[in-house]
């Protein structure tokens, strides 16, 4: 069951990334590009959660997961700051 939840989280993040990228291509609003990159990062983070807890439970990936999530959030923060005055 947990693996299903993690996989759905990853898929949802990836879906968001794709929707934002599609919209970025139509509007060229930079915020959408940064947001899309952020959601790709969150998808990777969720995949890493799967790997950490299910595939490689003996390896601690928490630092790597946190780093990926941090970088992802930095992207959307950058977009929000960059695109607002």
């Amino acid at each position: 069951m947990p693996e299903t939840i993690f996989a759905l989280c990853a898929l949802t993040s990836l879906g968001c990334a794709l929707l934002l990228l599609r919209s970025y291509r139509a509007t060229r609003a930079r915020l959408l590009l940064w947001s899309s990159i952020c959601f790709v990062g969150l998808a990777i983070n969720n995949i890493l959660v799967c790997v950490d807890f299910i595939i490689l439970p003996q390896v601690d990936l928490s630092a790597l997961r946190a780093a990926v999530a941090l970088i992802a959030i930095l992207f959307i923060n950058f977009g929000l700051i960059w695109d607002s005055k």
């Binding site: 930079r30 915020l31 947001s35």
Partner: peptide, 17 residues
């Protein structure tokens, strides 16, 4: 085509979904 439209990034974010 949205070329002539000035894009409100927050609205564009909402519309993306």
């Amino acid at each position: 085509d949205v070329a002539a439209e000035p894009v409100d990034p927050v609205q564009a974010f909402a519309d993306a979904f």
